[in-house]
Write a protein that binds this DNA or RNA. Sequence first.
DNA 1: CGTGTCATGTAAGGAGTTACATGATTTG
DNA 2: CAAATCATGTAACTCCTTACATGACACG
Lengths: 178, 178
Amino acid sequence: MNSQDVILGMLMKQSRSGYEIKQVLEELFAYFYQSSYGTIYPTLGKMEKEQLITKENVLQEGKPNKNVYTITERGREQFNVYMNSPVENDSYKSDFLMRLFFGEYVGYDKVISWLKQAREQLQRNIERLSETFAQERERLHPAKIICIQMGLKGYQANLETIEEGLALMEQLEQGKRD
Amino acid sequence: MNSQDVILGMLMKQSRSGYEIKQVLEELFAYFYQSSYGTIYPTLGKMEKEQLITKENVLQEGKPNKNVYTITERGREQFNVYMNSPVENDSYKSDFLMRLFFGEYVGYDKVISWLKQAREQLQRNIERLSETFAQERERLHPAKIICIQMGLKGYQANLETIEEGLALMEQLEQGKRD
DNA sequence: CGTGTCATGTAAGGAGTTACATGATTTG
DNA sequence: CAAATCATGTAACTCCTTACATGACACG
């Protein structure tokens, strides 16, 4: 899976500009894929050259023009190749867990501050993800529902573990003061 | 967080060779950090030049020699700088979830095969991670226990969601055949 | 005698991030 | 009038991955 595969998938149903692709990526894919303009725009250019997509300049009122990209037949074939290729291993990189792993080298207060920070972030993520899908829930393809459930249940499990950990750490921090 | 920070942390308590570092990384860090020799050896070289670590060639019987690295005072300071820097955002990249998201473009059978594959992988991961920490559990620093709990509970939540999703998909697959 | 483990490294390449650069329009 | 939003792009850089290269010994 690379940025090209992702973009092809996003253009399967509707044509979009690079800016719009970024927005959707941030709204719906945030919990399992991240990207930046520095990747999206060059990739779109490359894909146009390879005739996987076509560009159309669209004039807008009150807004700058935009380049709207449409997937070609060749692009659809390419997307199909991706969808039938072996699934790559997940890659999870967490600075937060690294800190916890090395938590013995700092004070309890530091660990507690990391946990609180992670808790707040998770609460925001859960709120955002549930809201995004609350309305359209019933109309979605079952595989997409599973995908969203993976995100939500995963977040919730993490939140619970952090909540428990925080309770433990605060207890220890109290005990230390006596 | 980069490979240098991780290596410094791993040398805080004991000196190790590049090969040993890789082994520990695979055994204990697999669920939140991955690395390769292509990163480890050049990083060790760089760190030695910067006097964050020192190298010692150790002769072994029946095995090739190894280069054992020891953290210096300067290295400890550097590690401290890392531990007091702002925590970076997690980065999770999942080809598996991407496939599910685009599941509407393939048949139910394909989705089911992805889910089964993910289930098997998760079962293996859970088994490995629980075994690794089953024995030494009580002696660990609380922060490290939370770190491991994050891994285990996260895996378990994912497994449950996949199990539910698989049941749903298999039901739909049956319904389709009538 | 072949496969696996121990052990260290290099070189080329890929993929993506960050920062920079620009500019119009809208909203408060 | 300032800040946010819409919109596109480039260039330098960092970091890591993959593949290659080597070699001794152990185990079955």
